[in-house]
Amino acid sequence: MIRLQTPISEEQIRALHTGDVVQLNGIVVTARDAAHKLMIENFIKTPEIKRPELYARLKPLLEGGVIYHCGPVVAQNPDGSYRFVAAGPTTSIREEPYEADVIGHFKVRAIIGKGGMGARTLAGCKEHGAVYLHAVGGAATLIAATVEKVEDVLLKDELGVPEAFWVIRVKNWELVVTMDSHGNSLHDQIQAASEQRFKELVGLA
């Protein structure tokens, strides 16, 4: 197993290939639909950075960092801090229109989600040196248990709990590289091979 510790270097990412199992440690930022739209509109597809304070907080977290497609169930402790209760991945393809630009702008090194992403993100991973890491869909309790600490949360009130940017510290989170920085997608490979086998089975080959 390959160990990754944030911040992750481009060199480490380039050494990864589809099918590799990695163990992730360090800081991860959750972002799903609303968060991606906000980043594009305020920081990327804009002549000047809007909301500079938010930008200043996010930028160091995302540089060499990791984005997780997840809308967690979060509980608040008596002292006001938070803990993750259930935190499985959500379907990633919804962020396909945004992700390549987010990766390029912030130099994000890894995207975590489920179901894989499309050609634009794959090209973005190749150009900027990033990978897509697949989490186990449904393994909500286990993934929440790898979250050692909720470090911070950004825009909780504005976006709501599932859509906010949760900044979490994870320990020994096992993930599989399904899209690498060399233009390979395990999803495309498996799809092609299974379609071939299907045609043989039903006599359409």
């Binding site: 099918g19 697949h134 999803h187 498996i190």
Partner: peptide
Amino acid sequence: EEANSLGIGPMGFG
């Protein structure tokens, strides 16, 4: 048996 010979595997990882 035939579905399992498609090689899709858990989460579609093969």
